[in-house]
Design a protein around this nucleic acid. Structure first.
Lengths: 243, 243
DNA sequence: CCGTCGATGCGCACACCGTACGCAGAGAGG
DNA sequence: CCTCTCTGCGTACGGTGTGCGCATCGACGG
């Protein structure tokens, strides 16, 4: 106590930087934006509060002034990204084209942010953000205008398919990304193993050559597969439209 | 060195328990079995190598003699559980009934092990276990026998739907389980909040009363919803059968 | 019977995680 | 000028997955 200055790097007025008005400060919006950037770039398990704080020139625990918990951050990120999904205005004459557009938009959003489906599967949309709400509202409008007596049933049918396919694709793309190779390279390298694995399974082996022949452009193959299944679902729904 | 016994609780012959032939020892099968039990009982984020080890009267790191990594453990658990999915023998006259059976079996398995869909979304089935392989093989046989020229397309369509719906349901059930209430209680308690949230959204609000009236038996409602969507997909597929 | 060896279990340690808590400044209002 | 609220941060706690090296054990060759 006698020696006023002891250890520590001397917290004097000169050492102390004034950090005010330097950065636009921390804000919920900035935090969410940066979190999404990290999630997109490095995947879901690379996001930590500490790293996120560092990216914002802040300490890890500073974030908690604007966000209650990491889970809440994730929900905010999900809702933010939900704004990217485009659902056409209701009432257009061709409801199939409109639904196809909405489904495709969901898929591309999910593939652009491969962590989306993971969080959806975990949180289950318990707390609904505004963007997700208006997404649902626009869908409901679309299917109602199309003439479905129980629009929510039809929506669930279509979007269960869309979510399922998008989840699978996102998982695949994540695996590919982790390999550091392009999708075609990865497929080429995986092919022998896959064929060996399906040896002894008659029907799987039968599908092998056919699949490998088309593997030249895997992205297009995925597009086609998605479109095919979507047409299947829409055909099934069309049978249920009155008249 | 002079005093032979020093600190430490004296590792003498008497203190030292013979652990041999007490438990069936640690084995990969036992580890996977116990991991599944923990996952089912306490959810995916409650499973840690330390707790799992403790449940097997073992240290955390002992498990690594039988399992390379936690991720690998999860893949083993997924494949183990895949054996529970029942796919009817190919060649039955009514392919729709057979597919409905397989789809329903997948769903009940996914709901019995709500962590299944989460792991599927993460790992993307990069490494395929034997049970998952024979599941796929049986499906391929089923759809080939049904007469689909491109069975894999049809399988993907149906099971993307099934996976999507099951994922959503599993997430919901997990949320319900965390609340400690029954599903009906949870729904009842959630209803006012849901209605308030959908105020201002015309079409969502319109669906409100109808939904709440049916909320008396939520499990049945989910069953119906799943069956409805499945019929939609199967109808769409039926249109693509030759002749 | 004894010495050796490979397989097995475990304690320790490391780096990292989410986050509770209380303090240090800054800006606003009296 | 004093006070009060709001924001950021340092520290700390109790967890996590897992690499490493040692102790122990059953089996087996001499």
């Amino acid at each position: 106590m006698s020696r006023a200055e002891d250890k520590k790097p001397i917290p004097s007025v000169w050492t102390r930087e004034q950090r005010r008005s330097d950065q636009p400060a921390l804000s919920r919006a900035a935090i969410v934006r940066e979190a999404i950037a990290m999630l997109d770039a490095e995947g879901i398990e690379a996001l930590s509060m500490r790293k996120l704080g560092a990216r914002l020139n802040a300490g890890a625990t500073s974030l908690y002034r604007h966000v209650a918990t990491k889970d809440e951050l994730m929900e905010l990120a999900v809702d933010e990204v939900a704004a990217e999904i485009h659902v056409p205005q209701a009432g257009a004459p061709d409801w199939r084209a409109a639904v196809t557009e909405a489904a495709g938009s969901f898929r591309t959003t999910a593939l652009r942010h491969p962590w989306l489906t993971l969080v959806l599967g975990q949180a289950g949309l318990a707390y609904l953000g505004p963007n997700y709400m208006s997404f649902s509202e626009r869908l409901a409008a679309l299917f109602t205008a199309a003439g479905f007596p129980e629009p929510s049933r039809a929506i669930d049918a279509v979007f269960s398919y869309v979510i399922g396919m998008s989840t699978t694709e996102a998982a695949w793309l994540t695996t590919v990304a982790r390999s550091g190779e392009s999708e075609s390279e990865f497929v080429a390298r995986l092919l022998p193993a896959a064929q060996q694995a399906s040896a002894g399974y008659d029907h799987l082996a039968a599908a092998g050559p056919e699949t490998s022949a088309r593997a030249a452009d895997p992205a297009k193959l995925r597009d086609d597969k998605f479109a095919y299944g979507l047409e299947v679902v829409l055909d099934g729904l069309a049978l249920r439209l009155p008249r």
